[in-house]
Design a protein around this nucleic acid. Structure first.
Length: 340
DNA sequence: AATGCGGGGTA
DNA sequence: TACCCAGCATT
């Protein structure tokens, strides 16, 4: 498996078939770092436009380190998992203080960087001989070696294999070749085995078990959540608030929201000094293993309602909002004014 | 080892 | 709806 033929076949295939991704046109460790963080649990196609906009606004570690957090979150809006953005800025500040890490272990000390990302930056941006395992590598490994294990066991086996297999003279290309194979040929559904440069080395293909690998872990149960949000309009402006620290969507903005219950209604009433009126619409939002039902109500402000902090529709929609808030506000506005 | 994170595109 | 994406941090 670690034969010279195996390494040479995959590397040659990579050279001839690699996608032209924007972060492959730079060797700037910061630019590659940004791409790797964005690519955590996020597809390449989604990331590309965000990466361009980010690099335009925050072209250097210094520019990110000194940026306003609201602007950082704003540029992340739509990518999700916002702790990635907060950690990226923390990391930028750390690097400005201490300099760039010079090893995978060093990168791992930076918030938001774990086993995969430290290996990726060290090997791709710095040419260091360290392995990596992501979802692609795990799948490629499980098929090549016909490993039917699941979860942590599969992950550990894949790491052991990646360490042994690593092409130490070209670690960055090798790691990307493995991931590229998984992303474009050895795909989860309908893998293109006939186009695979190492099909001759694949035990799952030899045994006709490609469709059974990798083995899936049992899926988790859905958790159902019900939230309510209040649309408090005064003089054409909406009352909004920043999500407090420790809550979901911390640091983003929202129209006042609580769980959809008696106590939630009381809480919102106490917080906004408004009175809940008619129901406007409900949206469903799915994230990870949660199904969130969010209902928007109109609410009537009182004299004590802090309407001085209200903002126009345009201002609100320009702020960093959580996905469900953006969805429900956009949908309601279009039903009001017939615009998107 | 399991879970929280609180997204999003695609078949 | 199901699947899963260049995962990480916390418990």
């Amino acid at each position: 498996m670690t034969s010279p033929e195996f390494l040479a076949s995959l590397l040659a295939w990579y050279e001839a078939n690699k996608r032209d991704l924007p972060w492959r046109r730079t060797s700037d460790p910061y630019a590659i770092w940004v791409s790797e963080i964005m690519l955590q649990q996020t597809t390449v196609a989604t990331v590309i436009p965000f990466w361009h906009k980010w690099m335009e606004r925050f072209p250097t570690v210094e520019s990110l380190a000194t940026a306003d957090e609201q602007e950082v979150l704003g540029h992340w809006q739509g990518l999700g998992y916002y702790s990635r953005a907060r950690n990226l800025q923390k990391g930028a500040r750390q690097v400005v203080e201490e300099g760039l890490p010079t090893s995978a272990e060093g990168w791992k000390q930076i918030p938001g960087i774990g086993d995969y990302t430290s290996g990726a930056i060290a090997s791709i941006a710095q040419g260091l001989p360290v392995p990596l395992v992501d979802g692609n590598v795990e799948r490629v490994y499980s098929r090549l070696m016909a490993d039917f294990s699941v979860g942590q066991t599969l992950k550990k086996n894949a790491w052991d294999w990646a360490k042994q297999t690593l092409a130490k003279d070209r670690p960055g290309d090798w790691n990307q070749a493995l991931m590229e194979l998984g992303a474009t040929v050895c795909t989860p559904q309908s893998p293109q085995c006939h186009a695979c440069p190492v099909q001759w080395a694949c035990r799952a293909r030899e045994r006709g078990q490609i469709d059974q690998l990798p083995q899936k872990a049992p899926k988790r149960e859905w958790k159902h959540l019900s939230h309510q949000a209040w649309l408090i309009v005064s003089d054409g402006k909406l009352l909004i608030e920043q999500v407090p620290k420790g809550e979901w969507w911390e640091g983003l903005w929202q129209v006042p929201r609580a769980i959809n219950s008696e106590s939630g209604t009381e809480e919102l009433s106490a917080r906004t000094h408004a009175v809940r009126a008619e129901e406007l619409l409900t949206i469903n939002h799915v994230v990870t293993h949660h199904k969130i039902s969010l209902t928007l109500y109109r609410a009537i402000p009182s004299e004590k309602t802090p309407i001085h902090s209200a903002k126009t529709w345009e201002e609100v929609l320009a702020m960093p909002l959580s996905a469900p808030q953006r969805k429900i506000l956009t949908r309601h506005r279009s039903s009001l004014f017939g615009i998107d």
